[in-house]
Simulated assay, not measured.
Amino acid sequence: MILGTEYRIEIHKWSEDSELSKNSWVGYCCCDLPLIVIADLDDEEHFHFDNEEEKDVYFKSSLRHEIIHAFLNESGLKDNFEHVPRMGHEETMVDWIANQFPKIADVYEKLGIL
């Protein structure tokens, strides 16, 4: 549930999903369906990981990134960035939130303000 909207999370083969393959994406968020897609990281033709832990970390990071897009979409910020009309969100900001949120949540939890 993202701000009252239920999103499906699906794993798609990179080679069978035109959005992933034509854009060289690892994932995407489609608020119209609503759907979050992450590429099948077991596809060794497109992804290489030294071990399962590395793959798991990458999967979780990618999923956090797409969930941030979903939160922005559901907050009314779907197409709110003029400099990125195709994507709708500035990717640096999305990456920053996705990467730093676990650390922020940890601080909030330790302070009892979550």
Rank of each mutant, 00 (worst) to 15 (best):
M1C: 08
L3C: 09
L3R: 15
L3A: 04
G4V: 10
T5I: 15
E6G: 01
E6H: 04
E6S: 11
R8M: 09
R8A: 11
I9V: 15
E10W: 06
I11Y: 04
I11C: 09
H12W: 10
W14V: 02
W14G: 01
E16Y: 15
E16Q: 08
D17K: 04
D17I: 04
S18M: 06
S18H: 03
E19L: 13
L20Y: 04
L20H: 02
K22H: 03
N23Y: 13
V26M: 09
G27A: 01
G27C: 00
C29T: 12
C29M: 12
C29E: 02
C30M: 08
C30A: 12
C30E: 06
C31A: 07
C31M: 12
L33Y: 15
L33A: 12
P34T: 08
P34C: 07
L35R: 08
L35P: 05
I36E: 05
I36A: 11
I36L: 05
V37F: 03
I38Y: 03
I38E: 03
I38L: 15
A39F: 03
D40C: 04
L41D: 01
L41T: 00
L41E: 00
L41K: 07
D42Q: 12
E44C: 08
E44R: 13
E45I: 12
H46R: 14
F47E: 01
H48M: 10
H48C: 07
H48K: 11
H48R: 11
F49I: 07
F49H: 09
D50N: 09
D50K: 08
N51S: 07
N51V: 06
N51D: 14
E52L: 10
E53Y: 11
E54N: 09
V57I: 15
V57E: 08
K60W: 13
S61Y: 10
S62G: 09
L63G: 05
L63R: 11
H65M: 05
H65Q: 07
I67G: 00
I68G: 04
I68N: 01
I68Q: 00
H69E: 01
H69C: 02
A70I: 01
A70T: 02
A70M: 05
F71G: 01
N73V: 04
K78F: 00
K78D: 03
D79L: 05
D79W: 12
N80Y: 02
N80S: 09
N80R: 03
N80T: 06
F81I: 03
E82V: 12
H83P: 02
H83Y: 08
V84F: 11
V84K: 00
R86E: 05
R86H: 06
M87V: 10
M87E: 10
H89M: 06
H89G: 08
E90R: 10
E90S: 05
E90L: 12
T92W: 14
M93H: 14
M93R: 09
V94K: 03
W96V: 11
I97H: 06
I97P: 01
N99R: 03
N99G: 12
N99Q: 15
P102Q: 10
K103Q: 13
I104M: 13
I104A: 14
A105M: 14
D106N: 14
Y108V: 12
Y108I: 05
E109Q: 14
E109K: 13
L111G: 00
G112N: 12
G112C: 11
L114M: 14
